[in-house]
């Protein structure tokens, strides 16, 4: 695991619990979440239609798309409810000195 793939997202207090922030890096966009047991990251765009999940609802480890209500598990990326049927890609997250990093492949 090379160090340079860990990208700094921001400080840990930039996200409220049970919420998310959008993070853009180069030509990719992500969602970074704070759940009760830590931080998680997924692709930013819903797999159903090209809508950003940043305005979606985070609840009980799930993110729900604001446009058509597809639901994904934030930790596994699994598509849980139609119309979404393709899983959402997830990314490793670490916290170092109150800063959040995600590992982009």
């Amino acid at each position: 695991m090379s160090e340079e793939n860990w990208i700094e997202v921001g400080s840990t207090d930039s996200i409220e619990e049970e919420d998310l922030i959008r993070f853009d890096h180069q030509d990719k966009t992500f969602c970074v979440y704070k759940l009760t047991d830590g931080f998680y990251a997924t692709d930013g765009i819903c797999t159903h239609e090209a809508v950003h999940l940043e305005d979606g609802l985070v609840m009980d480890d799930e993110i729900e798309c604001p446009m058509h209500q597809g639901i994904f598990n934030i930790k596994s990326g699994e598509a849980l409810s139609p119309p979404a049927c393709e899983d959402l890609k997830t990314y490793p997250v670490k916290v170092d000195n109150d800063k959040i990093f995600i590992k982009i492949d």
């Binding site: 305005d55 979606g56 446009m67």
Partner: peptide
């Protein structure tokens, strides 16, 4: 604008 009411409507 797309995305702005979905979360509140869902809640």
């Amino acid at each position: 604008i797309i995305g702005k009411v979905g979360r509140d409507i869902r809640i």
